[in-house]
Simulated assay, not measured.
Amino acid sequence: MRFNFLVILLALLILECSTTPLGRRQLILNDDSTLNEMGEKAFNEMKTTIPIEKSPAINNYVKCISYASIKEATDTTGVQTWEIVVFRDSAVNAFALPGGKIGVYTGILQVANSADKLAAVIGHEIAHVIARHGNERVSQSMVASGGMAVLQGFGGEAAAGILGAGAQYGVILPFSRKHESEADVIGLEIMSKAGFDPQASVSLWQGMAALGGDKPHELMSTHPSDDTRIKELQDNMPAALANYSAAKSQGKTPNCKI
């Protein structure tokens, strides 16, 4: 009981001084290097278990969009080099892990069928990393489980899930909607500053909603409702359009094509 109390007390103290890029106070109990190492290990294991897309055209296309977006993201988590991998899988999904690891499933290219739409997805995933959402998920689990020992249980798929790799890896649902809404707004800023049309984010999620049916796809399963997310994107659209206009005037016109 004493250890649990100390963990919770420490959590409350850290909650007062740790904030996301949008100014939300968050629970962070681990240093960035620990989470970056966890992200790298989980990502490396995924690369051995999920087929990797070999097409140069597809890889160059995804990386073109990703690196243009990364240039506009302010990371303070210690990412030295971002790694982008395209997985040959029909899942309508993408993810990012601490340490600057981005995974894009080929299945999402059928829905995010333009560079602007895919930039909305990738900007969203970059936002998860720079906002320390993976660290926050792990910290929440540590408090719920009573301490540091919980980190020892995160290996392979479990680590990938807790860090944000998608519903199929077991996400902590009670907190993820807040993370997803925040990543939408930060991602909108990233894509627009990179020179991608932010209005594509709305059409992307309208298209995702049309696919939903009775069972939401992986990328949507822990997200806010379609109407809520589209309203939030539209509420933030004036600022994004101003960023987009400024980016174009600065010559930022990413020519990413397959």
Rank of each mutant, 00 (worst) to 15 (best):
E125L: 11
H128P: 11
V129W: 05
H133E: 08
G164Q: 09
M148E: 15
S145N: 12
S145M: 13
N135G: 13
A160N: 11
I108T: 06
M142V: 12
N135T: 14
M142T: 14
Q140A: 12
L163G: 01
H124L: 10
A127H: 00
S139D: 06
A149Q: 15
E136L: 00
G156S: 12
I126G: 09
A131W: 08
Q110P: 00
I126Q: 07
H124W: 11
I130V: 15
V143C: 07
R137V: 02
G147M: 04
V121N: 08
E157R: 15
R137A: 13
E157T: 13
V111P: 02
R132M: 05
R132V: 00
Q110W: 03
I108R: 03
Q110S: 15
R137I: 01
V111F: 10
G155F: 05
S141T: 05
G161K: 00
I130Y: 10
I130F: 05
A144I: 12
R137C: 03
A112L: 04
V143W: 10
G156C: 10
G155T: 15
A120W: 07
S141Y: 07
N113L: 07
L151K: 13
A131S: 15
I162M: 15
S114L: 07
E157S: 14
S141V: 09
S139P: 02
Q152Y: 11
A127N: 00
Q140S: 08
L163H: 05
E136F: 01
K117S: 05
G156A: 05
H128I: 03
A127G: 00
V138D: 06
V129S: 02
G161E: 03
I126F: 11
L109I: 12
L151D: 04
G134L: 09
I108Y: 03
S139R: 11
S139T: 04
Q152K: 13
I122L: 14
L163K: 01
S114G: 02
S114M: 05
Q110G: 14
A158Q: 15
A144L: 13
A120C: 14
M142W: 06
V129M: 08
A120Q: 07
G123I: 02
A115N: 12
L109T: 10
I162E: 12
L118G: 02
H124D: 13
A144K: 14
E136Y: 03
G155C: 02
A160D: 05
G123A: 04
I108F: 01
V150W: 07
L151Y: 01
G146P: 08
E125T: 04
A127L: 00
E125R: 10
G161V: 03
Q140Y: 10
R132W: 06
L151I: 10
K117I: 03
G147F: 07
L163N: 02
V143Q: 14
S139N: 08
R132S: 12
K117P: 01
R132H: 12
I130M: 13
A144V: 09
A149R: 14
L109W: 15
A120T: 10
Q110D: 14
G155H: 13
E125I: 11
G164K: 06
G156Y: 05
I108P: 08
Q152T: 13
I126P: 04
A119E: 01
G123M: 08
H124Q: 10
L109F: 12
Q152I: 08
H128F: 08
H128G: 03
L163E: 00
S145L: 12
A144Y: 09
V143H: 12
G147I: 04
